[in-house]
Amino acid sequence: METRLAAYEALSAAQKQRLDALEVHPEQLPFCGDIYSALNCLLVNPNPGVRGFALLADDIPVAFLLLKRPPCLPHWANEHSATLHALQVDRHQQGLGFGKACLQALPAMALEAWPQIKGLELSVDTHNVAAMGLYLGAGWVDSGEAYKGRVGYERRLSWMFNP
Score class of each variant (00 low, 15 high):
K16C: 09
P107M: 09
N45G: 04
M1W: 14
A113F: 09
P71L: 10
A6W: 09
G33K: 13
R4I: 14
K118D: 13
M1S: 15
I35M: 01
K148T: 13
Q15H: 11
H75C: 05
M109C: 13
P48I: 07
Q88I: 12
A131H: 06
I35A: 01
A101W: 00
E2F: 12
A105L: 03
G137W: 03
L39G: 00
G95R: 06
G97E: 05
L39T: 01
L11A: 08
S81T: 13
K68Q: 13
K100Q: 14
P115Y: 02
R155F: 02
M1C: 07
L66S: 00
A131C: 01
M160S: 09
P26H: 08
G97W: 07
D59A: 12
A21T: 15
G139K: 07
L66P: 00
A101D: 04
G97V: 14
G52D: 04
R51P: 03
Y8V: 03
A110E: 12
K68M: 09
V151D: 05
L73S: 07
P61W: 05
A14I: 02
L87R: 07
L96W: 05
T3E: 03
A105S: 11
A77P: 05
L43A: 03
L111A: 08
Q116T: 11
P30I: 12
A14Q: 08
L66E: 00
A6S: 14
L19C: 04
K118Q: 15
G95I: 11
A6Y: 04
I35C: 10
R18A: 15
F64A: 00
F64W: 08
A10E: 09
S123H: 06
A131P: 02
D142E: 02
S12Y: 07
N45C: 05
A10N: 11
A110S: 06
L87P: 09
D34I: 01
L136Y: 00
D20K: 15
R156T: 15
G52Y: 10
L67C: 05
P115K: 11
A108Q: 14
L106W: 02
G119F: 04
P115Q: 08
E23S: 09
S12K: 04
A82M: 13
F53R: 10
L42H: 08
A7V: 00
F161M: 09
L96H: 08
G152I: 09
A14C: 09
M109D: 01
V50I: 12
K68F: 06
D90W: 07
E9V: 05
H85V: 02
A101K: 02
I117D: 04
E154N: 14
Q28P: 08
C72Y: 05
A101Q: 06
Y153D: 14
G33C: 05
F53S: 03
H75T: 05
S123I: 01
V24W: 04
H85D: 07
H92E: 08
A10L: 09
T83S: 14
A7T: 02
A138P: 02
T83Q: 03
A77F: 03
Y135K: 03
P107L: 08
F98S: 03
A21E: 13
E23Y: 10
L65S: 10
R18V: 13
L103I: 07
P115M: 13
L111Q: 15
